[in-house]
Design a protein around this nucleic acid. Structure first.
Lengths: 225, 225
DNA sequence: CGGCATCCGGGAAGATACTG
DNA sequence: CAGTATCTTCCCGGATGCCG
């Protein structure tokens, strides 16, 4: 848990401010995005590479080392017969979720935010947690399945709260099978599901519920407007 | 408002996730700390340099350019006779305060946070806003003056809320004149004011109120404990 | 003095190839 | 699959110097 192993002495801020210390720990390029990809549960090295297009293997190695030294994540070996190496956030690591929420909420107001860029499955799920508006889902109970590439996820809405986690899509009102960006287009761009079918989004189940689902989320207004 | 002027194309994350976009805007080294120093009001170039020991002039220039391009701050000329150039956050820029709060709260739990490092006046005031516990200040009304180097600040507690801003210390229950780190030691380290007097902290006014003041703040427990 | 351009050295990030 | 090794590029930090 020495700071030396996280950030070299020369590049530290030497500032007692908590925010500055956070940047010493996770302020390096890619560090926060690595953590983001682990927010929904452990992943392997190659999954991280696949979900963070643009990161190079050596940088990923360095970040994983640094974040482990900082106590944000641990490297763990899955028991046989899987026997795979995975990286998992510590309890404290998971507590970083509000960082992504406030960063996301703030940046969504940026005049030059481009929502058409690629989007990972984890990012989509975290965005639901961030942008869910309880007032718009009063009295609603819903269970939504999402097949997003390698992993399946379940989003549940009940008692004005939204939870999202990896899980079995069986028993959901409807199941979306799609690349994450298309679901974002439906939810945040309010693009009709029908218009997205030809791009590779499919709905099984209650389509009316799906159309209701997208009304529970809204982006904040752009700044300077 | 082109992203080109903020982050070169090669170093962008190409990720629609809001948090990733935030990092494109303010993820470069020093950018967030520059914003932090402006959270209590406009400052001049040389004040920023003085309050961010370690930043070099050219990097500060680059960050100010980038943050202006991003719409986070504006460069403004004070009217005569001051006629000084100052940098001021935009309304959207000021809305970044929750970023500092969640970063600070999260990093305060870090096992290797060193609270003895230097601390700027703005950081201290922001930490009050972040760490204030309304439950501990129930029914309290208090007006505190702080002379922290170049600027004077007023902290007010009323109706279970804390506000902190630049202002005249006249009319406060007590006035602290001190380098910011000593006040942090009193508030967060619970070091008695008497023990700090010889290091350069002075209290004028109601010392009992000062001793009450420090009880309104508490750091979160360390992670892994 | 305040703000910015320029040059340079060191080091981090990026791309590619390679290995157990 | 899970990383190293290597090479290049670019950013950061420091120093200097110009110009209002």
């Amino acid at each position: 848990m020495k700071l030396e192993n996280v950030t070299s002495a020369k590049r530290r801020y030497d500032d007692a401010c908590g925010a500055a210390h956070a940047l010493d720990l996770v302020g390096e390029r890619w560090a926060l995005l690595v953590m983001r990809e682990l927010m929904m549960g452990p992943k392997r090295f190659s999954d991280l590479r696949a979900d963070l297009p643009g990161i190079s293997a050596n940088v990923l190695t360095q970040r994983l080392e640094g974040l482990e030294s900082a106590g944000v994540l641990v490297k763990r070996k899955l028991p046989p017969p899987a026997s795979a190496q995975v990286y998992e956030l510590t309890e404290w690591g998971y507590e970083s979720e509000p960082i992504f929420q406030v960063l996301g909420r703030w940046a969504a107001r940026s005049p030059c935010h481009d929502p058409t860029l690629p989007l990972s499955a984890v990012s989509l799920l975290l965005s639901f947690r961030t942008m869910f508006d309880p007032a718009k889902a009063k009295g609603v109970e819903m269970r939504v399945g999402m097949r997003l590439g390698r992993e399946d996820y379940v989003v549940r809405i009940a008692n004005g709260e939204l939870t999202a986690a990896r899980g079995d899509v069986e028993g959901a009102e409807f199941v979306l099978t799609s690349p994450p960006p298309l679901i974002a287009a439906a939810v945040y761009g309010k693009v009709p599901f029908d218009a997205l079918a030809e791009s590779g989004l499919t709905i099984e189940g209650d389509r009316a519920a799906a159309n209701r689902f997208v009304t529970f989320f809204a982006l904040p207004p752009k700044a300077g407007a």
